[in-house]
Deep mutational scan, measured.
Amino acid sequence: TTIHVGDLTLKYDNPKKAYEIAKKLAKKYNLTVTIKNGKITVT
Rank of each mutant, 00 (worst) to 15 (best):
T1N: 09
T1R: 08
T1F: 13
T2G: 03
T2N: 05
T2M: 09
I3H: 03
I3E: 01
I3T: 02
I3L: 14
I3K: 02
V5W: 15
V5E: 02
V5D: 02
G6V: 06
G6F: 08
G6N: 04
D7A: 11
D7N: 15
D7L: 06
L8K: 06
L8A: 03
L8E: 02
L8Y: 07
T9W: 08
T9F: 11
T9Q: 12
T9E: 15
T9M: 12
L10K: 06
L10P: 05
K11H: 15
K11E: 14
K11M: 15
K11Q: 15
Y12T: 08
Y12N: 03
Y12E: 04
Y12L: 05
Y12A: 07
D13A: 09
D13N: 07
D13L: 07
D13F: 06
D13H: 05
N14C: 04
N14I: 06
N14K: 04
P15S: 11
P15H: 10
P15N: 06
K16Q: 13
K16I: 12
K16S: 11
K17Y: 13
K17M: 14
K17N: 06
A18Q: 01
A18D: 01
A18L: 03
A18G: 03
A18R: 01
A18V: 03
Y19W: 14
Y19C: 03
E20G: 05
E20T: 07
E20Y: 11
I21H: 06
I21D: 05
I21Y: 10
I21P: 00
I21R: 02
I21V: 14
I21N: 05
A22M: 07
A22Q: 00
A22W: 06
A22P: 00
K23D: 08
K23G: 07
K23V: 14
K24N: 09
K24Y: 15
K24F: 13
K24M: 13
L25H: 00
L25V: 06
L25P: 00
L25W: 03
L25Y: 02
A26I: 03
A26K: 03
A26T: 01
A26F: 04
A26L: 04
K27C: 08
K28G: 02
K28Q: 10
K28E: 09
K28H: 09
Y29P: 01
Y29V: 03
Y29G: 03
N30H: 11
N30C: 07
N30T: 04
N30S: 08
L31T: 03
L31G: 05
L31M: 11
L31D: 01
L31N: 01
L31H: 02
T32A: 10
T32G: 04
T32C: 07
T32D: 05
T32Y: 06
V33Q: 00
V33S: 00
V33A: 03
T34F: 07
I35N: 06
I35C: 08
I35D: 03
I35K: 07
K36Y: 09
K36G: 13
N37W: 08
N37T: 07
N37E: 13
N37H: 11
G38R: 07
G38I: 03
G38V: 03
G38T: 06
G38K: 06
K39L: 14
K39H: 15
K39N: 14
K39D: 14
K39S: 14
I40H: 01
I40A: 01
I40F: 04
I40Q: 01
I40T: 02
T41W: 15
T41E: 10
T41L: 14
T41S: 10
T41H: 14
T41Q: 08
V42Y: 01
V42S: 00
V42Q: 00
V42I: 13
T43D: 05
T43V: 11
T43Y: 10
T43I: 11
